[in-house]
Write a protein that binds this DNA or RNA. Structure first.
Lengths: 221, 221, 221, 221
DNA sequence: CGGTAAACGAGACGGTACGTCAAGTCTTGAT
DNA sequence: ATCAAGACTTGACGTACCGTCTCGTTTACCG
């Protein structure tokens, strides 16, 4: 984890709105982040992570998080705006890779993509991954703010690494130079993700291979 | 979301299920579907539909449905196993097209697909469509049973129509004959759906066009 | 203290009130007393009585009453407006003597009053009596509604019995015929009650005797 | 209500107490009264007084006092043991007459007492007097320590002045020489006080007059 | 007269209880 | 027997204060 600044990351109030926040007269209190207990923060995040795995997101309660963390409920409400935010930050802390992500590059884009996609299929089959990620996605559907955070903090770094691999393929002449890489990524991953998330079909390695093959046909120069 | 009730299924209308069930000694009640009040059923479904649009799924309550429908809570619990089931059946009743769906076929698959995709983009931008469909998808994520029902009752017929159009394109030599049409459909729709559902990017007509163009490149003979 | 319910009183059993209340439009719910659970009511009252004795009124909580009574909090909030009302009704149920109170009448008013007053002194010294009655009085000070109820339901019958004894003394020529009996009663009891309630002095049998002697001097024909 | 704090008393000014206390090893802090901020003390007392009038004692909170006084909560907890103590000292500071109280003495005890009692009746009717005094009395009921303090610091001086007037009447032969003046005072005031405090009856000037007349009958030589 | 320990304002903390809401179950007439 | 109505137990909600515990920041005493 990178050294934290005052903001701390998930702070919901620093939302999309332009936080000039001169506070013309709002009654709401503004907790001072510099006095925040790092110990409590970590205990809450840990408890949240554990409980999501144990109960699933829907059955998770703020009270249970507070109890497990040995923390007053107010300490949660003071720093997070919803159950979703807590859980999201818990995931964020977990998944934070620290530095850059580098994907394998054997020189053959098809080989590498098939490897990546098979890996993703395997990951989706892991029950420890399943519950929390489903929970997060279900929340994202109904919470634009969370969606934005998710894409900024969690998806973007990974996507950037994948696009870097595609750029390398472009340089190698394996993919057309004028292809929109964002679109290309969606073509590759969205079908897979959707099958898993919405259970619209079986997820096998063969499926992953077919998907890569078909997509690469579209991307070829 | 909850495991299940005695009924064993969401579809309350399929009374002819496996209801041989002479019940050897279980204490649980077995409501007799033949005595069911059709009027109450419709009032509940209508109330559910209205309330999902007004409040969203998360803020929808069984009590509110019962109140709006002028119905006792027990009448809902008697025939449905969860909030999700009620709402799903409400959608189902709404979207039921009765008979087959036929998509336009001008002879040029690119034209037709672009039209279809632009139409989908427009539909996704309609607020009246937004709330309930997001709600349904959020539930599907965490409820395999609901997912199965959704794909069987709602998605399948539409998908079949789309595949029929692709088959027509295959016959016209515009799409390779050996393409897996399910996969093709996913390539086309999953990126669009994901952008909307998970808010991973802007949804424009240009995007739809690019998506069709790129996908068709993959499908070409 | 609390606003009020339509009933306007603590005694929930007196359904025959003046309940003209056609309800012009208030949104508040009106629970139907005929469906009330007598078992829960009694459990609540019993728990309240016990807990006041154990903890005192100030440390008594609605939650504790509900827990001890094996009852949901809502069931308390549904039928009573405040902690004070519950406790008051608990006392009321306890102290209800059913029928009329008759005080001893030896023919000599001084003897009888001294006996009565000494009895009162003894009662005040009983710890089981102390906590709840202090609690009730403390509430009465700040709650006019409760005060009215107290005087109507609990004090009035006892006072009437005492006045009857004084009337007997008037007939016997031991007390002036034109004395205001309410005032006489206050002269007798208020000093004693105040010493106990506000702890303004020691409560002894000698004090009771002196008080009776002095008061009777004032009441003599 | 709570037993006590280290300080041992409500009167924070009596710094010279039993403060030999060299403290052999207790960990508890001993705030040094000489460093106490007189400004904060006054702000707290003022805030307490205002807030009791505005909200009543029950709804008064330490936090509100601290906020209104512009003071940290700890500053209150450092010097007082309970809400009751703060409020009591606030009253005490208010009512402190500085020096001795002298009551009118026209030579006729009945005239003077009726005047005094009517004045008391008027005082009781003043809403500014009502809230805080009721609050104080309600606390006294459940707090022996507060009761003792009240009688010592607030009641005693006034009672002494009244007894002085009665002594004067004894000297003038208007009251029997052997009358217990404490008892006499109670006979006079307790009925009035009780009517007001427990709302047991209307408080009028006529009532005050009758009370004086009847009591004097008991006190006559 | 400058250093230092206290008291101070502020407010975050672990808690308890509040009064409300809804869940799902159970009971009572009415149809 | 199902229905509308709604009281019931349960449990979580989000809020208000509790009394304790740091935080810097004055303040006043003492060396």
């Amino acid at each position: 984890m990178t050294i934290d600044n005052t903001n701390g990351g998930t702070d919901s109030r620093s939302g999309a709105d332009t936080d000039a926040d001169t506070d013309g007269g709002r009654a709401a209190a503004k907790p001072n982040p510099s006095r925040r207990s790092e110990q409590s923060r970590r205990a809450i995040l840990t408890a949240a992570r554990e409980l999501v795995s144990e109960l699933g997101f829907a059955k998770l309660t703020i009270e249970a998080i507070a109890a497990r963390a040995g923390v007053g409920k107010q300490t949660i409400y003071r720093w997070w705006g919803s159950k979703g935010e807590v859980v999201f930050e818990a995931f964020l802390a977990l998944s934070d890779p620290g530095e850059g992500i580098v994907l394998p590059d054997t020189g053959d884009v098809e080989t590498d993509l098939k490897y990546l996609m098979r890996e993703t299929v395997a990951e989706f089959a892991d029950p420890a991954f399943e519950a929390p990620v489903r929970a997060l996605n279900a929340e994202i559907i109904n919470d634009p703010k969370l969606a934005r955070l998710y894409h900024e903090k969690m998806a973007a770094p990974v996507d950037e690494a994948k696009k870097e691999r595609l750029r390398s393929a472009q340089r190698a002449g394996q993919i057309a130079a004028d292809v929109d890489l964002d679109l290309a990524l969606e073509l590759l991953y969205a079908p897979l993700y959707q099958r898993w998330l919405l259970r619209s079909g079986p997820l096998t390695e063969e499926y992953a291979d077919s998907l890569v093959a078909l997509t690469l046909k579209a991307l070829r120069p």
